[in-house]
């Protein structure tokens, strides 16, 4: 079977002409099924850029990037939008819709799936919220939740759509130490339970222990890979 993520010779530059700046240089990386890979490295080393390419949020420029069996090099906008539906994203900020309850926010990740009825969507959202320990908070708007709880809603939202891959960029940056660790452990457990691979960018040394493998980047290159 295909690996969920397989990058080969990916290079990427921002800007045009004189302003052109290469931020990824010939990056190759693979993520095995069910594997949790942490991406670290100094600021500006290109981690986020790499994640946006894998997440089909940006158009590829050079190299090959296969995600969940689809080649992203040269993929059209519409194909990229469709692929994103099979990826769970967790951002530094939760970005929950303030005018929806926790349950409705989670259900938003299911509303693009024509197989489900409204009742099924809400039921599944409720199950996911229970799985992140928020069974008692399903009907609250994000403004009534703590930072850690909001990030857990975001995790529930990312996982509700049964994604084939989870991408997270510094999910603990906006959280204090304790809730940050809780959140990533929860993410790890849920992903493990479902066999979903994770590619997670972090600066946070306290969470390195959740990884199967740690990949370090520097100046647009992968400099070191170590098994945890």
């Amino acid at each position: 079977m295909d690996r969920p993520v397989a990058l080969r010779g990916v290079s990427f530059a921002y800007g045009e002409g004189d302003l052109r700046r290469l931020v990824l240089r010939d990056v190759s990386l693979e993520v095995e099924p069910g594997e949790i890979v942490l991406l670290t490295g100094p600021s500006g080393s290109g981690k986020t850029t790499l994640l946006t390419l894998v997440g089909a949020l940006r158009a590829m420029q050079e190299g090959s990037c296969r995600v969940l069996g689809r080649e992203l090099m040269g993929a059209r906008e519409g194909d990229r939008v469709r692929l994103r539906r099979s990826i769970g994203f967790i951002f530094q900020n939760h970005n929950l819709l303030g005018f929806l309850t926790a349950r409705q926010n989670v259900a938003m990740s299911l509303e693009l799936d024509g197989n489900l009825t409204e009742r099924q969507r809400l039921a599944r959202a409720g199950e996911m919220l229970a799985a992140v320990g928020l069974a008692d908070h399903t009907e609250k708007p994000p403004s009534k939740l703590s930072g850690g709880q909001r990030q857990r809603v975001a995790i529930a939202r990312a996982l509700a759509g049964q994604p084939g891959l989870i991408l997270a960029d510094e999910p603990t940056a906006a959280l204090d130490k304790a809730s940050g660790q809780e959140v990533v452990r929860l993410l790890r457990d849920l992903a493990r339970g479902r066999g979903v691979p994770i590619l997670l960018v972090t600066h946070d040394p306290r969470i390195l222990d959740i990884a199967d493998r740690i990949v370090a980047m520097e100046d647009g290159r992968i400099v070191e890979t170590q098994a945890a």
Partner: peptide, 22 residues
């Protein structure tokens, strides 16, 4: 919540079942 306790055994779960076609 989880059928096997991966965080205790350190074992990796089998690959995710392919999501139903959307």
């Amino acid at each position: 919540l989880l059928p096997w306790a991966p965080e205790m055994t350190g074992e990796t779960a089998p690959a995710a079942p392919p999501a139903p076609p959307r």
